[in-house]
Computed example of a mutant assay.
Amino acid sequence: MAPGNQRDLQAVLWDMDGTLVDTEPYWLAAQSEIAREHGLNWTMQDARATVGQAMPVTASILQDRGVSLSTEEIINDLLERVVAKLEGGIPWLPGAERILAELAAAHIPSALVTMAFSPVATRVASAAPIGTFHAVVAGDAVAQGKPHPAPYLVAAELLGVEPALCVAVEDSVSGTTSARAAGMEVVVVPGVVQPQSGPGRHFVSSLEDVSMESLRTILRDTAVTDHPPFDQRTELTAR
């Protein structure tokens, strides 16, 4: 790419569960506990179907399996159980606090873009290095959750940046689909359900492999291309 066409990194948008913090097991355990309390068996296949999804979707899956609670009751129950776990501390994944601090020191804003509701999202965001998160988009703040592009587009708007000049960091199929549909390059870390390779997806073994310069390089070395049109069926058949 010619120097005049280089794109400078304006912001980094972060998924939360399984990407920055090792809280995915908390959600899966909470789901399993609720199912067990209703005399149901919650399988790994059931759990995998919820990864990266909006909380009402998770509630619907639990209801489909036989949990006789309302959507609001299930969501509140899940939130209470996960928040209780977080009282013992935030389980940051290796490399997370270091890269967040690097970006904050360089005055590159970050946003947290998660399908977890605000009680969990704000708790994690407030525990991050000072000056890290300039916006938090939680699952209860958007009408359409991942895999729809809305969460990432809302985050970019809150930060006042161009989506194409952001890099998203994700671990799930629905999250990666969401960020790509919003026109962003995506760094993909290992997750419970691994997204497929494709344009605009940059796979790493962990956040320890991610640096401020590597994020900048993704934009500098990537030609501007049309992002794929949003199609909720994209890759979700694997779920």
Rank of each mutant, 00 (worst) to 15 (best):
D64G: 14
H148N: 15
I74C: 11
V113Y: 04
G200P: 04
A135N: 06
L62G: 08
F117R: 09
E157R: 13
W42R: 01
A2I: 09
V120T: 14
G145N: 10
A155S: 08
A29V: 06
A101E: 11
L28N: 09
L103E: 03
Q196V: 12
F133N: 09
L158I: 03
L207T: 03
T234V: 12
N41R: 09
E73N: 10
E170T: 04
A156F: 04
Q194R: 12
M55C: 08
G183Q: 05
V21Y: 01
Q45S: 14
E170W: 04
A168T: 09
P163Y: 11
T234N: 13
W42K: 03
G4V: 12
D226N: 13
S205M: 00
A30T: 02
V136T: 12
A138V: 09
D77K: 07
V83N: 06
S70L: 03
V188L: 04
S172A: 12
E33Q: 14
F230K: 08
V113G: 08
M1H: 13
L112Q: 07
L219R: 01
A168R: 04
V21H: 02
P195C: 06
W92T: 10
A84S: 14
Q196F: 00
V224F: 01
V142K: 03
T176Q: 07
G52R: 05
L79A: 13
P94M: 01
I218H: 04
V82R: 02
V173D: 05
E235V: 01
A11Y: 02
H107S: 15
L28M: 11
D171I: 08
V169G: 07
D140W: 01
Q144L: 15
V51R: 05
F117N: 15
L103A: 05
E157L: 08
Q144I: 07
A223Y: 00
V167H: 07
Q6L: 14
T50C: 15
E162A: 14
S110P: 06
G131N: 09
T50K: 02
A116S: 15
G145M: 09
L153F: 02
A223I: 08
E185P: 10
E37W: 00
G191E: 10
P195W: 00
K146Y: 05
P94F: 00
K85R: 15
G160S: 08
V169T: 12
M1V: 10
Q63D: 11
S118Y: 03
A181N: 05
S68V: 13
D17R: 02
E208Q: 14
P25K: 07
D209M: 08
R239S: 13
K85Q: 14
P195L: 02
A116N: 14
A127V: 06
M55V: 11
Q31M: 13
